[in-house]
């Protein structure tokens, strides 16, 4: 879990990156910078309620998800490993997260997406690797028909 539920939203917004100098120097937290950073991401990812000082536990599951996604994607990593990035997220935000993931691909970053949503995979992926019983059973193109993918998922075809 990439969140600490009793923390305020803005505190979770820097989790894992708390040592970066932009969040404060000499070991002291720069509260204004942290707050501004949280506000910016809340705005961009439409996190609701838009309150950076609210306890994270009081956000809905989808909005908690958005806090994590915002934090990790906005860091602009070279490799993004995402599992179920849109689980429990509302439709508008799903679209936004999908666009951000595509943007990352377009700017030359490596993205490994793990998901149980077939539509999500077909919409986002350039290559699909199908797992069955803990093993990689084959590769498909995103335009492969669903039946073919389904057979691979069941371990029948490869």
């Amino acid at each position: 879990m990439g969140l600490i539920l009793p923390f305020e939203e803005r505190e979770n917004n820097i989790l894992g990156y708390q040592q970066l100098p932009k969040y404060g120097r000499n070991g002291v937290l720069d509260r204004q910078a942290i707050l501004d950073d949280a506000r910016e991401k809340i705005e961009k990812y439409d996190i609701r309620p838009p309150n950076p000082t609210l306890k994270t536990a009081n956000f809905s599951g989808g909005n908690q998800q958005k806090i994590v996604v915002a934090r990790e994607i906005e860091r602009d990593p070279d490799i993004l490993l995402v599992g179920q990035p849109t689980r429990g997220v509302d439709i508008g935000a799903i679209e936004f997260i999908h666009r951000r993931i595509i943007d990352m691909r377009d700017s030359g970053k490596a993205v490994l997406l793990v998901s149980v949503e077939l539509d999500e995979i077909r919409a986002l992926a350039d290559r699909i690797l199908v797992m069955f019983a803990g093993e990689n059973v084959g590769e498909a193109k995103p335009d492969a028909d669903e039946q073919q993918l389904g057979l691979m998922m069941a371990g029948i075809a490869s």
Binding site: M1, G2, I4, L5, P6, F7, L15, G16, Q18
Partner: peptide, 12 residues
Amino acid sequence: ALGMSKTAATYA
């Protein structure tokens, strides 16, 4: 962070 969630702290 450590006091509230050891796993999240390790992650961070």
